[in-house]
Amino acid sequence: MTLTLTVPPGAKVRVRITNENGETTEIEVEPGETVTITLPAGSTVRVEVEVVDPDGRKRTETFTLKP
């Protein structure tokens, strides 16, 4: 399973991925970048995406991906 994120110009994104064992991976994606994350097959993962807009506003979306 893959997750692809494209960050709009001016925004910053931090992604936290937590697996079933509670292990967390965190990455930051710079403005204008596209990143593809390969998620472990057969695992349920929690993905938290934090977006910081150019004006400093933050918003966070959290979702769970199941196999």
Rank of each mutant, 00 (worst) to 15 (best):
T24R: 07
T44V: 07
L5F: 11
V52A: 01
V51Y: 14
N21I: 10
E20S: 05
G32I: 15
V7P: 01
V13K: 01
V49N: 00
I27W: 11
T38W: 13
T2Q: 04
V52W: 07
F63Y: 05
I27H: 12
P67I: 15
T62N: 01
T18H: 11
T25D: 05
V7L: 13
T34R: 13
G42Q: 13
T64V: 13
R46K: 06
T38P: 08
V45N: 07
R16F: 05
P40R: 14
M1W: 14
T60P: 00
V52F: 02
V49M: 03
V47H: 00
E26W: 06
E26A: 06
D53N: 01
G32H: 12
K66P: 15
R46Y: 12
P31C: 14
V7I: 08
P9W: 11
T2Y: 11
V13C: 09
V47P: 00
E61R: 09
E33D: 10
T62G: 03
T38A: 09
R14H: 04
T4Y: 13
E30K: 10
T24E: 07
E50C: 03
T2L: 10
V13N: 01
I27V: 08
V47C: 02
R16G: 05
R16C: 04
G22C: 14
A41W: 14
G42L: 08
T24A: 11
P40E: 12
E50F: 01
V15C: 08
G42I: 12
A11K: 01
N19C: 12
E28T: 04
P31I: 15
G42Y: 11
R46A: 02
P40M: 13
I27R: 11
V15N: 00
T6G: 13
E20W: 09
E50Y: 01
T2I: 12
A41C: 14
E20G: 05
I37F: 13
T60E: 00
T6P: 13
T38L: 11
R16V: 03
A11M: 01
E28C: 04
P31N: 10
V13E: 01
T62F: 07
T18Q: 10
D53W: 14
E48A: 03
D53K: 00
L65K: 00
E23S: 06
T36H: 08
L39Q: 05
I27L: 08
T38I: 06
T4F: 12
L5G: 04
F63I: 15
A11Y: 03
T60K: 03
P9Q: 07
R57D: 01
E61P: 01
V49R: 01
F63D: 15
S43M: 14
L39W: 09
A41L: 11
V51D: 01
P54N: 04
M1N: 03
T25R: 08
A11S: 09
R46H: 05
E26Q: 06
N21F: 07
V35D: 03
V49H: 00
L5S: 02
N19P: 15
V15H: 01
V45C: 05
V29R: 10
T34C: 14
T24Q: 09
P54W: 05
V13P: 07
P31Q: 07
L39Y: 09
E61W: 15
T44F: 13
L39K: 03
L65N: 00
R16M: 04
P9D: 06
P9C: 06
G56Q: 00
T64D: 12
E33Y: 11
R46F: 10
M1E: 02
V35G: 04
V13T: 11
D55R: 01
R57A: 02
T18N: 09
P31F: 09
E28A: 08
L3W: 13
G22I: 10
E33W: 09
R16Q: 03
T64H: 04
K66G: 15
G32R: 13
T25Y: 10
V52L: 02
K58G: 01
T38S: 06
A41M: 10
V52Y: 03
V29H: 08
S43N: 13
T36K: 09
G10K: 10
V47F: 02
S43Y: 11
V49I: 12
D55Y: 06
L65P: 03
T2V: 07
V15A: 05
G10A: 12
P8N: 12
L65A: 01
T6I: 10
T34P: 12
V45R: 06
P40C: 15
V35C: 06
D53T: 10
G22T: 11
T34M: 11
T60H: 01
V51R: 02
N21Q: 10
E30Q: 05
P54M: 06
E48H: 02
I27T: 06
T18I: 15
T25L: 12
R59I: 06
F63S: 11
E26F: 04
L5K: 01
T60Y: 10
D53E: 04
L39T: 07
E48Y: 02
T4K: 07
